[in-house]
């Protein structure tokens, strides 16, 4: 069965399906109930599943994640919404010291099947703390899994797979695309495993690595130079653990790689990917692995955010530079 869905609708449908499949799945967060979340991702779910399963929480992020830990210990599978990326830091301690470590500390006796949904990234003209990309901080934390969806089909399936995971998952949603282009979502298809990366456009000259909002940018960049350069684009999808297989296979063919993300470049995902590509593709590389990302500054005021965010031109500039070597 297929249906045309926006990313927002696909996530909503995925959450609904997960709640129907497993009565232990609970949604929790600020304004997720009657309002349906500030982005309407949980629209209508409280009405259908009740206030005990779609829980409007007090306005305290550490409280949301900390009580989710207790609910998980009792056998529930909480899916918590952090309203905006920049609001996750009050919950940072509960995430890195508790959620990430309880399985390890108890030698596998206590699982933490918690999903922490975070609308991330910029481009919506918001005030500060509403446009950040904190993924590297979580990918750096052992015990957490980190994934990012980039399109409605992945949104529908990945959220269900994350909820079914017995490990805690930081689930990043490119908020700029919530209400953008629709895709046909086949709800009877068999999805790929959650922790896999995927070639979304084949090419032979250079490999672009992206996830979340940058996948679309990289696809546009590849299209823009069609006929001049053959650009391969990989949607990483999983940031922890990384799925290096498709990356290594691609870069060994193309000899050139550019990693892109909205997050600041310094010690970001690009640094890890560049190191791994260097280790695993050394003899195939024609150029150093380049990185394109946000500058190493705080996220700027919204009127200049489109200058600050890596766009099609900055991605292509980096592609050109890989051919200078």
């Amino acid at each position: 069965m297929t249906e045309k869905m926006t990313l927002a609708k696909a996530l909503n449908a995925g959450l609904r399906q997960a709640m129907e499949d497993d009565p232990k799945v609970l949604l929790m967060g600020e304004d997720v109930g009657k309002l349906g979340g500030v982005f309407r991702i949980t629209d209508g779910l409280q009405k259908d599943f009740g206030e005990d399963r779609v829980i409007d929480s007090p306005l305290a992020e550490s409280g949301i994640v900390g009580t989710a830990v207790g609910l998980a210990m009792r056998g529930y599978r909480p899916v918590v919404e952090i309203q905006f990326d920049g609001f996750v830091y009050p919950a940072y301690d509960q995430i890195v010291s508790q959620v990430a470590k309880i399985r390890f500390r108890t030698q596998g006796r206590v699982a933490m099947p918690i999903v922490i949904r975070i609308p991330f990234g910029g481009g919506i003209g918001a005030v500060e703390h509403h446009s950040e990309s904190p993924e590297a901080q979580f990918a750096h934390t052992p015990g957490l899994k980190v994934v990012a969806c980039s399109n409605p089909v992945d949104g529908y399936w990945m959220i269900q797979q994350a909820i079914a995971s017995d490990d805690p998952v930081i689930f990043l949603e490119p908020k700029r695309q919530y209400h953008g282009a629709k895709s046909e979502v086949d709800t009877s298809a068999t999805p790929e495993p959650l922790h896999t990366s995927r070639v979304v456009r084949a090419g032979s000259d250079v490999t672009l690595l992206a996830y979340g909002p940058m996948v679309r940018t990289c696809l546009s960049a590849a299209e823009a130079v069609e006929g001049e350069r053959s650009v391969e684009v990989i949607d990483l999808r999983t940031l922890s653990p990384l799925d290096m297989g498709p990356v290594v296979e691609s870069v060994r063919r193309t000899g050139r790689a550019v990693v892109t993300h909205e997050a600041q470049v310094n010690l970001g995902m690009g640094a890890e990917l560049a190191a791994r590509i260097t280790e695993q593709c050394f003899y195939s590389l024609e150029a150093p692995v380049l990185r394109v990302g946000g500058f190493d500054t705080p996220y700027p005021a919204s009127r200049i955010e489109e200058e600050w965010l890596p766009d099609l031109d900055r991605v292509l500039d980096a592609v050109d530079r890989t051919f200078d070597f």
């Binding site: 009580t67 989710a68 207790g70 609910l71 210990m73 009792r74």
Partner: peptide, 9 residues
């Protein structure tokens, strides 16, 4: 918070 969450369960 864990005690509170467990109690909610």
């Amino acid at each position: 918070l864990h005690a509170t969450g467990y109690a909610m369960g």
